[in-house]
Design a protein around this nucleic acid. Sequence first.
DNA 1: ACGTATGATTTCCG
DNA 2: CGGAAATCATACGT
Length: 394
Amino acid sequence: MDDQTRMMTGLTGLGGLAQADVGDPDSVRKQQSLGQPQQDIGDILQQIMAITDESLDEAQARKHALNCHRMKPALFSVLCEIKEKTVLSIRGVQEEDPPDPQIMRLDNMLLAEGVSGPEKGGGSAAAAAAAAAAGGSPTDSSIEHSDYRAKLAQIRQIYHSELEKYEQACSEFTNHVMNLLREQSRTRPISPKEIERMVAIIHRKFSSIQMQLKQSTCEAVMILRSRFLDARRKRRNFNKQATEVLNEYFYSHLSNPYPSEEAKEELAKKCGITVSQVSNWFGNKRIRYKKNIGKFQEEANLYAVKTAVDAANVSAQASQANSPATPNSASQLFRGVDTLHRATHLTGGYEELSGSGLYTPHCLDANSWQDTTNPPSVTSPPGPPGSVHSDTSN
DNA sequence: ACGTATGATTTCCG
DNA sequence: CGGAAATCATACGT
């Protein structure tokens, strides 16, 4: 309604049809006494103004009559022109929404998470790669749980179906509105530009809905991630074979139980765990071993025996392979048994072991780990193993 | 149920 | 940034 009056005022001014204010009923009456064209226009305007007071049927008939009026096209175009100048120009400036940083962030994350990326052709591999590339976190390859992937795929599927629904609804609604406006544009001043604007508004609304979808999808992914990544929540002990491999390495490198990056990778592969898990394990092992060497003595001996036996077997096999006919294998085996024997001796009696040569020097050597000023070869006299010896710090 | 073992995380340091 | 130390939180054996 307000628009209507504004249009009217605009019309009078622009068209120069009348100097007086059309909104004033008196002026309309005054116009009737004027010349023929003016009277005609005034007549039409009065009819338009009065149309709301009439009954529905009357109004319908009146509308039709007005529609067929010979002045209608001219009047209509003028109204359009005015409307464009007044109504549209008012809000026409605050357009141009820049690519929302928020939605960009969401998009990036969904892409990185493998939710919105390319379709599931490569499947988990692509997703995992994307996640790894995005996160770069040490936890990357630990997300290989099939459960995780299944849940992620589920989220992905929901996301895509929802997105599709939104898009469809958006285009449907846009079409509907456009048809409606086109339809109405026959009786009401609506310019194509206005339709365009309307479409843009609709799209903005729908994209804000999309953002909500993206937001909740991100949230779901984050929750899923945290649930699966927080291994503390669902800690599993490594399997026996894995701990065996790790312990073997630890005790056979007791003088310097710091596996290199390559060694860690190798161990990780052998144990079916990640490199960071290997690092954790060695970190824990070192500190716990150092804290209470006595407690680990048995274990140390066990693995010393194990490695000794392995060494014996290996050397026996090697010698056999070297010279199948040689009777030397017996002596090789014996050497293995010898080491084994000496190793078994170690149980309990670590005092005499210093200098036994197998591994003992390292056992009591935890103080020299990480100590560049004190190479392992020149070990300081070991403290009482059972008691908690002084911490290196302080 | 409880204590211990153990993998992971946090904090601090060089 | 890698490691030590402390700490957390769960698994596991009793």
